[in-house]
Each structure stands twice: as C-alpha cells, then as structure tokens.
Design a protein around this nucleic acid. Structure first.
Length: 545
RNA sequence: GCGCCCUUAGCUCAGUUGGAUAGAGCAACUGCCUUCUAAGCAGUGGGUCGGAGGUUCGAAUCCUCCAGGGCGUACCA
C-alpha cells in the first residue's frame, strides 16, 4: 500500500514537471507476476503529448527511480512501453505485518462519524413463501449491505410491502375457499387464485383456531389477516435462515394514513405536473423529457403503484440517509425513472440514490427449465432450496455471477456435495489453514513467533500469496464503488487458487523452524483475508471440513 | 416501434477507468497421496470474444449499424 502511493507520487511529480495535469496516473497490478509488482502505461499515454516514442519516455520516467529509492528495487521497460516496478521485499513484508496486526479489521474501514445508508430489497408482498427468484435479491441485497458495512457505513435494511391491494384480496379469498372446503363445502376454486399448498395449511390453521364459525362470513378480512400473518412469519423465518434480518418493515398503508399520498399529489400539482384526463389523474412526465405521461390515480380513485412509490421515496429522503439503495428485479426496470424524476423536481438530491437492477434467475433441473410463479403451485421455494443445499451454497450461487447477467441456477449442481460444487474450494482453503495452525499449536509453534522471521519467505509461491493478500482492501474499495459482490467472490476464488498452489509447493511445518514460523504467519494472514472476505459475503469459514 | 440487460471454450460464466500470449468452474483425457485435509495440485485438448464498420500506438472492453435472446413499454405490482 505504502509502496503504491510512493510510486504514484513520483509519477505525478513527473507529470507536473511536464505541466500535464489532466492525465490520471494509473498504476495497475500486472496480470502476470513476471511483470513485477506494479505496472504503468503512463509512457504510452504520454507519447502523443510529448511527441516522443513511448519507450524513450519510459526511460525518462524510470530514471526517476534510482538505486537509492526507498521503495522500488528496480524497474524495467517492457513491450510497447510498459513500466514495470519491482518493489523492495521489505515493502511486501510490511504489508504482511499490517494484515496480521489488523486481523478482523483488515479490509474494513472504521469511521468516527459513520455515514448512513438505507437499502431496500426483497419487498415482496405477503402473498406466498419466498421463491428462488426472491432469493437472488435477498442474498444480493444483504451482501451489498455487508459491503457497505465493511466500508464503514451504518446500514439499514428495509422491506417495503403492501397488504391492501387486489393481490391481497385474492389471497384472502383463496384462503376462504380452502377454509370452506375444510368445512365440508364443495367449492369451485378459480384458476387465477393462489394454488399453492400453503393456502390449505393456512386455512387449516384458521379452522383449528375457530372451527367452522367463519363459514358464513362474507368478509374476507379474517382470512386475509391470518394469511398475511402466517406468510410474513414464514418469510421472516426464511430470511433468518439466510443469515440476516431486516431492520424495518415499511407498510405502504402508513403513507395513506399519514397523508403522504395526498401530500405527494399536491406537491406535484404545485409544480404543474399533474392533470386530470379520462377520469384519471396523470403525472405529466412528458414535460420532464419522458415519452409519455403516467397515470398516478386510476379513474376508480385508487392510486397506481407509482404514487405510493414516490411518496415512499420522499420518506427515505426525509429520513436523512447519506445513501439510498434500491434493488429491483429486471421486471421493475420501468418503475424508478418516474420516481427519481418526481424526487428531482421536488428538489431532492437524487444522486444519493443508487438503483441496482438484477436480471432473473432461471432454475434448471435435469436440463429442464422450471418456471417459477407464486400464483401457480409449481414453484420451488427458497426454504426448499435451503433444506436441500444449506445457506452457504445458496448464498454462493446467488453471489457468484454478476447481477447484470441472467443467473442459471443449476439445482442439480447446487445439491451436489462434492468437489464439483465451487463453494467448497474457498472454504477448503480456510479449513486447510486452520488444520495446519492447529497442528502447529500442538507443537508449540505459533504464527506470532514468525513475525520476526518473515524474511525467510522467498519463494515465488510465497511472494505471489503476499501480493494477492494485499489486494483485498482494493477489492473492497472496488465493491463499495460498484456494489457488485461477485467481484469479491472472484477475488476470493483466485486467492484460494494462489493459496492451494502455495500449499502444494511449500510445506509449512518442516524441520526448518524459522521458515516454519514465517510460513505460519503467512497462512495466518491468508486465513484472515479469506475469513474476512467470506464474512462480508455472509458465507461461513469452516475450521474443518 | 421504443427503453434496459445479455451474446466470450461443448455447458455455466469471469474478464480491473482500453494494455503485454483472452481466463475460471463443470464436462473429456493424462499424471501426482508412507510427510500439515486429494473438497487439492500439475498437464493436454477445446476460441473468427454474435456479425460488420469506426475511434488509436493498442479494442472482448469505447462509438455506430445489424442479428439473436431476456425483461419492460398497463388506469397490474
């Protein structure tokens, strides 16, 4: 880390000498270790400005790093004009010591006054158990929350729901019909009602509680209420199994009760962005650069989802978060531009808002696609999945791909408890390390004793491992910017590869005590990084497998 | 028609603000356990990065056009 900033400063100074200010200094980790610790393409970038060949410029730059440089051991000019920097070994060892010292804090940012972030996700209405589709969003959202926490944010996880709409009425009616069946009535169960077996379970529960005393009730309220209660209990249980909990559940109804819906309409009216047409109330988005206006209150007097969405986001703004993150599935792609437009026109700082859109999950089993739908009965629930494969596999599968890509969830592979399953590759590296540390402990060898013997680390594999470990904070930084957990997954997988390679070539506990101790320190540092990384993903780091 | 996402090895996918010989897992094949966990390692085969132009020292990456797939384009959410 220190070496990196040192080199950057020198490169910046070189730019200053040539009065160039608009060129960012880029120092990258080369793809291959044989190209050094850091590499810069600066000379090639400068070729046009300075009207000299990249290699000549590179030589001018490397001349800045003499034999007496405190950080850089040597440099080389390679290929079309890359400058490769090789740092002094002591710099790497310092970085290693820093990891051991920071321990569980390594990669995390501590702040005096933590900024706040709110992240809204899942937000499924309580009409049925969470499906595998919801699973992607739940795991993604929690991982993003954990990344922000690692970056020093105080994070609120919020679940927004609506228990008043048409869906809920159909749900209540579905429970009522199943209840009547249990009471012995013959009923005609409509196809567009909720077919799932859980409806019968809820009806049964109601029957157990009240017998058939509700069978002549035309009011669906008791049916709806128990359905909501039971389904929410179920949803919260599933979320708990995934390893987190929501800090708040926001009921859309409160927006009506507190007059925030009317207030929203009035505020837009004041901006002359509301008009009545065909008996409905429209938000004149066409005046804000959109291709069409949008209905916010139907001719029935019932608001469309956009209006409460806007009012809801106003509350997010008013609650004073420094950052607001919404996670939506691809099917909601069209809902947020209007919401943001409304916020902007009302003077809120929409730059605080980040909307993450993730693509769908395709579930395949035995080579066939399984269509998931809550209404129809043929879904596989998230709970079922957790029963089959456990939390770690579930979370890993949802996090290993970019949210922008469709996720092909191979149920057969996920169920496999063997080396075919990629989760275990990272966890296995951690377990191996713990096993060695345990063995060393039995021999009265500790990694702490290795701190003063780190200069015994010399092999290619050892150096490669240290370099990889020092990347961790940069990966966290990157994840904080992009909010893409899969980048952390990829990093940990790669780190595990470097470790497994080291493990195969370098035996840790040998007759050479000084070397053994140094290597214990190295694997302890590796354990820290893998452990911290998995923790941010919400995946366990087992000590034995 | 319009908007967003995707198209990279047989399959599923990575690929750093444009960089050096495009990678991983799975599948196929070949080796490696009397020594800290073989859920591992080493190796082989497998590619016109959907197609065509353009930008430049340099493009899987940026721009334009085209083709294919997903999602949306509701007085559903």
């Amino acid at each position: 880390m220190h070496s990196e900033t040192h080199i950057k400063e020198k490169l910046t100074a070189f730019l200053k000498q040539h009065s160039i200010s608009d060129l960012p200094v880029i120092l990258q980790r080369p793809r291959e270790d044989r190209f050094g610790d850091f590499t810069s393409n600066l000379a090639m970038q400068l070729a046009r400005h300075l009207r000299k060949s990249p290699r000549d410029i590179a030589l001018d730059i490397t001349a800045q790093f003499g034999d007496d440089d405190p950080v850089v051991d040597h440099t080389e000019v390679a290929g079309p004009g890359f400058i490769n920097f090789y740092v002094r070994k002591e710099g790497l060892l310092d970085a290693l010591r820093a990891i051991l010292k920071a321990d569980k804090q390594y990669g995390r940012v501590q702040r005096e006054n933590p900024p706040t972030a709110q992240i809204e996700f899942v937000s499924a209405n309580p009409t049925g158990p969470l499906t595998i589709g919801h699973g992607r969003q739940a795991v993604l959202g929690d991982a993003v929350a954990r990344i922000l926490e690692a970056a020093g944010y105080d994070v609120t996880r919020e679940y927004y729901f609506n228990n008043a709409g048409r869906q809920m009425r159909v749900l209540g009616q579905s429970v009522r019909l199943r209840y009547l069946e249990i009471c012995g009535a013959s009923v005609d169960f409509p196809e567009d009602h909720y077919q799932g077996a859980y409806i019968r379970d809820i009806a049964q529960k109601l029957y157990d509680r009240h017998g058939d005393s509700l069978k002549n009730s035309d009011d669906i309220t008791p049916f709806k209420d128990i359905a909501e209660e039971e389904i929410f209990k179920d949803i919260k249980g599933t979320i708990a199994r995934l390893g987190f909990a929501f800090d708040s559940f926001f009921n859309e109804k409160s927006l009506y009760d507190e007059g925030k819906i009317d207030a929203m309409v009035n505020r837009l009216k004041e901006k002359n962005l509301v008009a009545e047409k065909d008996g409905a109330v429209w938000f004149l988005t066409s005046q804000l650069g959109f291709d069409q206006d949008r209905v916010i209150i139907k001719s029935t007097g019932e608001p469309t989802y956009r209006l409460p969405d806007m009012a809801y986001h106003v509350t997010k703004m008013e609650r004073g978060y420094d950052r607001i993150i919404d996670i939506f599935g691809a099917d909601h792609i069209d809902t947020y531009p209007d919401v943001l437009a409304a916020l902007k026109v009302l003077g809120y700082d929409v730059d605080k808002v980040t909307v993450l859109i993730h693509q769908f999950v395709t579930l395949t089993e035995n080579g066939e696609k399984v269509k998931m739908s809550t209404r129809k009965a043929n879904f596989v629930t998230l709970d079922d999945l957790l029963d089959e494969v456990g939390v770690d596999v579930t979370r890993y599968f949802f996090l290993m791909r970019s949210m922008h890509s469709h996720l092909n969830f191979d149920l057969a592979l996920a169920k496999t408890h063997s080396d075919e399953n990629p989760v275990f590759y990272i966890q296995y590296a951690h377990a191996r390390i713990c096993s060695i540390l345990k063995l060393a402990e039995d021999k009265k060898l500790t990694w702490q004793q290795g701190l003063s013997r780190l200069d015994n680390l010399k092999t290619e594999e050892e150096t490669a491992l240290i370099r990889e470990l020092t990347e961790f904070p940069k990966i966290i930084q990157k994840c904080t910017e992009t909010l893409e957990p899969h980048k952390l997954v990829n990093y940990l997988h790669n780190l595990a590869t470097v470790f497994h390679k080291f493990y195969t070539v370098c035996r840790v506990i040998t007759g050479d005590e000084a070397l053994s101790l140094a290597r214990l320190a190295l694997i302890q540092a590796t354990r820290i990084v893998i452990g911290n990384g998995l923790n941010i993903l919400g995946i366990s780091a087992p000590e034995r497998m």
